[in-house]
Simulated scan of single mutants.
Amino acid sequence: MREFEELTTINHIEDFIGSHQLSFLYISRPNCSVCHGLLPQVRQLMEEYPEIALGHINAEAVEQVAGRFSIFTVPVLLLFVEGKEYIREVRIVHMDLFKEKLNKIYKNVIG
């Protein structure tokens, strides 16, 4: 199972997004039951997309993330292509629809 890189500062997050063609951020809080329930499903899904760099952000530890990405609740799933946000899913994520969106972008970018 692929692991998510822990991103602990805004600069680390910006570098992560900028240094990968495809980057995915999972933003959560430690006391969020929805976050903890969704993460294993996202981890399993991301096995199908080996070219996507995976990053995790604890929104309590990196408080600036809320302002940087206009986040008002967690979990938040963000996919970036060459530094530009292409997918944003918040709170209740329908995995089938999320996978469809990922497939379209991944096929267009990776081929």
Rank of each mutant, 00 (worst) to 15 (best):
K99V: 05
V81M: 05
T9D: 11
Q64N: 08
G83Q: 08
I110H: 02
H12S: 14
Y26C: 04
C32Y: 10
P40V: 04
S19D: 14
F4G: 07
F16N: 02
I110W: 04
L25W: 09
H56F: 13
V109R: 01
D96I: 12
I10K: 11
V90D: 03
Q21A: 05
V109H: 08
I27Q: 07
M1A: 12
H94I: 11
E3N: 15
C35V: 07
L22N: 01
R91N: 07
D15G: 08
L77N: 07
E100H: 12
L102D: 01
D15P: 00
L78W: 02
N31F: 14
L77I: 11
L78T: 07
V74M: 03
E63D: 14
T73A: 15
L7M: 09
G111M: 10
S19R: 15
F98R: 01
S23H: 03
P50G: 05
E82N: 14
F69N: 07
L25S: 05
K84T: 13
I13G: 04
N58W: 09
Q41Y: 08
I71P: 00
T73N: 11
N108Q: 12
I17G: 01
Y49C: 01
M95L: 10
L25V: 09
S70V: 12
N11D: 15
A66T: 05
Q21H: 08
I110P: 02
V74K: 03
D96K: 12
L25N: 13
P75K: 14
E5G: 03
S19V: 01
S28D: 12
P40N: 11
I110Q: 01
G83R: 09
I27S: 03
E6A: 15
E48M: 01
L38F: 11
A59W: 08
A53R: 07
N31Y: 13
H36F: 01
E3L: 14
Y106L: 06
I87D: 04
K104P: 00
H94C: 05
E5H: 12
V65R: 08
E100D: 12
L25A: 10
V74T: 13
V109F: 13
R68H: 14
T73E: 15
R29A: 15
N58I: 06
Q44T: 14
L77M: 07
A59D: 11
N103E: 06
V74W: 04
V76F: 04
T9R: 10
Q21C: 03
N11G: 10
E14S: 07
F16H: 04
R88P: 01
R29K: 15
I52S: 00
E6Y: 11
L25P: 08
F16P: 02
Q21Y: 02
A53M: 07
N103A: 07
L77W: 00
K104W: 04
T9W: 11
I105F: 07
M95N: 05
E14I: 11
T8N: 14
V34D: 06
H94G: 07
R88S: 10
C32I: 12
I13E: 06
E89F: 03
Q44I: 07
F69P: 00
L54S: 09
N58Y: 12
E5D: 12
I52P: 05
N58T: 10
E51N: 11
Q21L: 08
I10L: 15
F98I: 06
Y26D: 12
E89D: 13
V42P: 02
V81F: 09
D15R: 14
T73K: 09
I10F: 06
A59M: 13
S70Q: 15
L39V: 06
S19P: 02
G83W: 08
P30N: 14
Y49L: 06
I17K: 00
E82F: 06
